[in-house]
Simulated scan of single mutants.
Amino acid sequence: MELSGRIAKSTPGPLGNENCPRVTISQAFLQHGGPMEFQDRLAALATKVSNQASAIGTEEATKNAFVMPFISSILGYDVFDPLEVVPEFTADVGIKKGEKVDYAIMRDAEVQILIECKASTGAPKIEHASQLFRYFATTNARIAALTNGVIWQFFTDLDAPNKMDAKPFLVLDLLDIDDTLIPEVQKLSKDSFDLDSIISAAEELKYVGALKREIAGQFREPSDEWIKFFTQRVYDGSYTAKVREQFTSLVTKASRQFLTESVNDRLKTALGAGAGVAIPVAAEATATVSSEPATQADLERDTEIETTLEELEGYQIVKAIACGETKPHRVTHRDAKSYFAVLLDDNNRKPIARLHFNGRQKYLGLLDEQKVETRHAIDELDEIYEHADAIREAVVRYR
Rank of each mutant, 00 (worst) to 15 (best):
E2K: 13
A8N: 14
G16L: 08
N19A: 10
C20L: 11
P21D: 10
P21S: 10
P21N: 05
V23R: 08
S26Q: 11
Q27V: 13
Q31I: 04
A44N: 04
T47F: 07
T47Q: 07
S50K: 15
A53I: 01
G57I: 03
E59F: 01
E60S: 11
F66M: 10
V67W: 05
S72T: 11
L75A: 00
L83F: 09
L83T: 06
L83E: 14
E88Q: 07
F89Y: 15
V93H: 11
G94F: 12
K96S: 15
G98P: 03
Y103A: 05
M106H: 00
V111T: 06
I115V: 07
K118Q: 02
I126K: 12
E127D: 14
H128F: 08
A129D: 03
L132P: 02
R134L: 13
T138C: 11
T139W: 03
A145C: 15
T147L: 09
W152I: 11
F154S: 07
M164V: 02
F169C: 04
V171R: 04
V171N: 02
L172S: 06
D173K: 02
L174N: 06
L174Q: 04
L175Q: 12
D176E: 09
D178F: 07
D178T: 12
D178Q: 11
P183Y: 01
L188R: 05
S189N: 08
D191Y: 04
A202W: 01
A202C: 06
Y207K: 13
I215A: 12
G217H: 03
E221R: 13
E221G: 09
I227V: 04
I227S: 03
T231K: 01
Q232D: 05
G237C: 07
G237T: 02
F247H: 06
S255H: 01
R256W: 10
T260M: 09
S262E: 12
V263M: 14
V263S: 02
D265H: 15
R266V: 10
T269I: 14
A270P: 00
A270E: 12
G274E: 05
G274T: 08
G276D: 10
V281S: 14
V281C: 11
T288A: 12
L299K: 15
I305P: 04
I305R: 10
E306H: 13
L309E: 13
E310R: 13
L312D: 00
G314N: 05
G314C: 02
Q316G: 12
I321Y: 02
G324E: 13
E325M: 15
E325N: 08
T326G: 12
T326H: 09
K327M: 06
K327I: 10
P328M: 12
V331F: 09
D335T: 08
K337D: 05
D345Y: 01
D346T: 07
N348C: 07
N358Q: 15
K362M: 15
E369P: 00
E369H: 10
Q370P: 00
K371Q: 10
K371P: 03
T374I: 12
I378G: 01
E386F: 09
E386H: 15
H387R: 14
I391L: 12
R392D: 09
A394R: 10
R397Y: 02
